[in-house]
């Protein structure tokens, strides 16, 4: 065989290998891309399309309205803005409270005590219960009659019974308490696993440096948890913006529309009232844009403060 044929053979072999590699890589990512297109990008495009029309489920594209739907929800009719405000209020209560409680809880669980395994299980269990069932249970707890546990408790302390879910000042708080209860174990577990990866000597060094427990928490533990806190902040914010079942079950959006959330507004327009599918579509698009903006802001504003190992 001449040098040339050898070279050519080598080249062909190389080419064959290159092509095989390419085919293999594409084969691996193709299913994911397919799913993404089918269930994310296509519906997304469809949604934009939908939001420009007036129609219902059976006939979504009855009449073209252009940006009229957007003007309706953002300017002409106040209901969307009210639900957006309700939702934002909920997020502003839920995220900081749930986040700080789960960090504190994780720090408490960190010490290897017998009771902690038990407590961990107890706090995690609600996460396994369907939201709708939890919401149902908490509706009983906050029941307006004196049979409700909450009312039972405050009566012991000599206060009058209160219509927890029926008053606009407490209804959203009750929903928040229920959701915190349901998710705190899960969040704490994530923080706990991060805490367990911090070497014990760092804490011992802090002890020798006469650092108080509070100072150790703020100066050492919290900065070391910052990647997890950042991640949880973003997922909790976006998830709680989409709150739906628990409110629907516990308050039904009431009293009035004082606890009605954006997703409930979308649902109602899509499936309950006639010829408002386009409004639902436009609201969904606005919600998506808001969530994107918040995530972007989080990244821009906070990522520099996050300490990655």
């Amino acid at each position: 065989m001449s040098d040339l044929t050898l070279q050519r053979q080598a080249k062909r072999k190389l080419n064959g290998k290159f092509i095989r590699n390419q085919v293999f890589s594409w084969a691996l990512v193709l299913p994911a891309i397919l799913f993404l297109c089918l269930f994310t990008f296509y519906p997304m495009g469809n949604l934009v399309h939908l939001s420009l029309y007036r129609g219902n489920i059976t006939n979504p594209y009855k009449t073209f309205r252009g940006i009229e739907n957007y003007l309706d929800i953002l300017v002409r009719r106040p209901q969307f803005m009210t639900t957006l405000k309700n939702t934002a209020l909920y997020v502003c209560m839920y995220v900081p409270i749930c986040l700080s409680l789960s960090v504190i809880f994780a720090v408490w669980l960190q010490k290897a005590r017998k009771i902690n395994n038990f407590a961990q299980t107890c706090f995690f269990a609600p996460h396994l219960v369907a939201t709708i069932s939890s919401a149902f249970m908490w509706s009983w707890i906050f029941s307006p009659e004196s049979s409700g546990i909450a009312n039972g408790i405050i009566k012991v302390f000599g206060f009058n019974t209160h219509n927890w879910l029926g008053s606009s000042s407490t209804a959203m708080v009750c929903v928040m308490i229920m959701n915190t209860w349901a998710s705190i174990g899960h969040h704490a577990l994530i923080f706990l696993s991060a805490l367990k990866s911090i070497p014990g000597e760092v804490y011992e060094a802090a002890e020798l440096d006469s650092s108080s427990a509070v100072k150790t928490f703020f100066k050492i533990t919290l900065p070391l948890l910052s990647p997890q806190i950042f991640l949880m902040l973003i997922t909790m914010t976006t998830n709680s913006f989409k709150i739906f079942e628990s409110v629907r079950q516990m308050t039904g959006g009431g009293p009035g529309i004082s606890t009605k959330t954006v997703c409930m507004f979308i649902y109602d327009n899509a499936f309950e009232t006639n010829n408002t599918l386009g409004l639902a579509g436009a609201s969904s698009i606005v919600l998506t844009i808001i969530l994107m903006l918040i995530t972007l802001l989080d990244f821009k504003g906070l990522e520099k403060k996050v300490h990655y190992q």
Partner: peptide
């Protein structure tokens, strides 16, 4: 308690505070 003993220790695996700068590490105590 360790903090009441007036003792300083250099740990075998350093145990420096990873989130603090060198200055803050030295300054902490």
């Amino acid at each position: 308690a360790p903090s009441k003993r007036d003792i300083a220790m250099v740990f075998q695996n350093y145990a420096i505070y990873p989130t603090m700068t060198v200055r803050e590490n030295i300054e902490f105590g």
